[in-house]
Design a protein around this nucleic acid. Structure first.
Lengths: 339, 339
DNA sequence: TGGTGATTTGCAAGCGTTTTCTTACCTGAC
DNA sequence: GTCAGGTAAGAAAACGCTTGCAAATCACCA
């Protein structure tokens, strides 16, 4: 069968406890013994059973990634790979693995979290893109289980999270369009119950208000993070009594869909309608025209989230609860009037 | 502390064994006892400790996903999210979770696999995009550990795998271009040591040969699965003594980069150069021009891989070792001459 | 009444580790 | 040569669960 600590002990002529101590680099162990044990491990091809280890030591070196329900939206978005890449890079460095489970309903979502948390399967949890009044947040707080938000909680200010200043980002994006001379500016929002949607919408509204511009309700279009949304949005846009000359769009992928949809109805970007979107997924630069976008540092978002969680787990008392990843506006052709 | 099976037993007035049996739906347990135990679990908020459970039962309900080293390439590609989505959907259905670990070097990669496999952390392993002479494949065969390839092994015919008929797919793509009247057709390949690259290149060559067309070595350009590759490829293309009028490209994202790069040097797709690529990532349809591509059924690829692995794990003797996901050519504007 | 077999439950060992507590051993000072 | 003081190694109990085997209970019939 598989080789255990006892086998190693027998071969090395020591007790299992000693082997265990060698394994965890216990200081008070003689170099000679260490050598003997190491050799035995080598010849037997020993590898510790992580289950047994976690059972007694009560940690798993695993982080749980809880995907928002109806994760389809997120998944289909390159944003997700990129944030995952950042997470894995950091986790990898600290010898952590990532456990993912997806869910289709809120019920399944809670079950998944319970399996992970109450089943002692992970040491900490990462919550992506939380919603308003997210029950998972409540649950984890109730359990007093370590977790970090990628995004922020509307209700709990003291929860550790990594986020952009989405309000400011949308504010910047809108102001850029205003500076380009646009007066009628629309906004395409993500799912209504997500905190990020709320923040960005607010940023857009603030910029419009400060510039003394009308902020009409029918210029705010709801979408989700799928390219089809961009496509669908077009019919709404076309039916508007007064059509905006520019849009702030909450996600590059929606922008792709919109540009395409506009093209099909004979409208050109940026000549007829200017566009600024969010995220700077790597393809946005290769779009035709290249898309002006707010670079939110996706990779860093993922990396720092995991880093924060690991710091929490290692007992470090992390006083700064909120980490803000800086954003910057990348002006490309989709928002450049007549060049 | 956390509530265990003993607590439940005490409250329900039965023995721990009985509780365990209720948990696993043991047939010979009286309905009355079941009810009592269920109630006790409910009031205590009991959740089984998965570590303890796996320690004795020797399975973890977890699948390990081993990413190819230098996974950056893959990650940055929407292909990856989509395949992951398929995997998670299937795993989720069967109550499995996915454990990911990434690695930067071959050494780290082997360590990760050992942690997973020898550490008894997962029940089975999924290997993505295997390379020629992949040491991980050898290792898993040596351990006799259940695993499934997403892709195929060049050396081992009897390994369970889910794959496309990449040779035929490239053959189809090339023939499509030939049918459009092209005679000078180039090929942009993925990393040389990956099996998929080999297969697609072979398909391209076969089509060219059968059509009696020259298959010049300097028309085969090596790239990796990054958009930058497409970009870089351009300088190579421009320096060719005799330039192809069309390209078969092994990945949509490279195609994006190439279209952009060609545009920048004043060449138009499809008017100057036609393009057919692979994968049909969702953005390929929204490209400008929309990209003709081989739809390889990414989602299904992921879904079926996990399904096959789970079937293996559940003891079902799966006789059919190779599952081929059908592909189809989607003709879009990037390969349509003058309309 | 006692024996038989079927059905339900409990006992206890074991899964592969870690860790506390003890013991054995060695060093050096008196 | 004895004993304190310290260091290195072992014994054994846990961690929370499963499961083979034995015991208990009960119905039934001779």
């Amino acid at each position: 069968m598989s080789v255990t600590i006892k086998d190693v002990a027998r071969i090395a002529g020591v007790s299992p406890s000693t082997v265990s101590r060698v394994l965890s680099n216990h200081p008070k162990i003689s170099p000679a013994t260490v050598r003997k044990v190491r050799e035995a491990m080598e010849t037997l091809g020993y590898h510790p059973n992580i289950m047994a280890k976690s059972l007694v030591s009560k940690n798993t070196n695993t982080l749980g990634l809880v995907l928002p329900r109806s994760a389809e939206e997120l998944f289909a978005n390159p944003f997700f790979s990129e944030v995952l890449r950042g997470m894995l890079a950091c986790a990898n460095l600290a010898q952590y693995d990532l456990l993912m489970s997806s869910a289709n309903s809120q019920k399944e979502e809670l079950e998944a979290v319970n399996r992970m948390v109450l089943g002692r399967r992970v040491d900490g949890v990462i919550l992506m893109a939380p919603r308003k009044n997210d029950p998972i947040v409540e649950k984890l707080l109730e359990y007093d289980f370590p977790f970090v938000l990628l995004g922020r909680s509307l209700e709990h200010q003291d929860v550790h999270c990594v986020n952009n200043d989405n309000l400011k980002a949308a504010y910047d994006a809108t102001n850029h369009l205003i500076a380009q001379g646009h007066r009628r500016i629309g906004f395409v929002s993500g799912p209504k119950d997500m905190v990020v949607s709320e923040d960005r919408l607010e940023g857009y509204r603030r910029a419009m208000r400060e510039a003394g511009l009308a902020c009409r309700e029918d210029w705010v279009i709801n979408a989700d993070f799928l390219q089809e949304s961009g496509f669908h949005a077009i019919s709404l846009v076309m039916n508007l009594p007064e059509r905006p000359t520019a849009f702030v769009i909450t996600d590059d992928i929606i922008a792709f869909g919109m540009i395409r949809g506009l093209y099909d109805v004979g409208l050109r970007v940026p000549d007829d309608i200017s566009i600024v979107s969010f995220n700077n997924i790597n393809l946005s630069e290769l779009s035709n025209p290249p898309i002006s976008t707010i670079d939110i540092g996706i990779y860093h978002l993922g990396y720092l989230t995991v880093q924060l969680l690991i710091r929490k787990l290692s007992g470090e008392s992390v006083s700064q609860t909120q980490i803000t990843v800086p954003h910057r506006l990348l002006v490309r052709k989709s928002s450049m009037k007549t060049m």
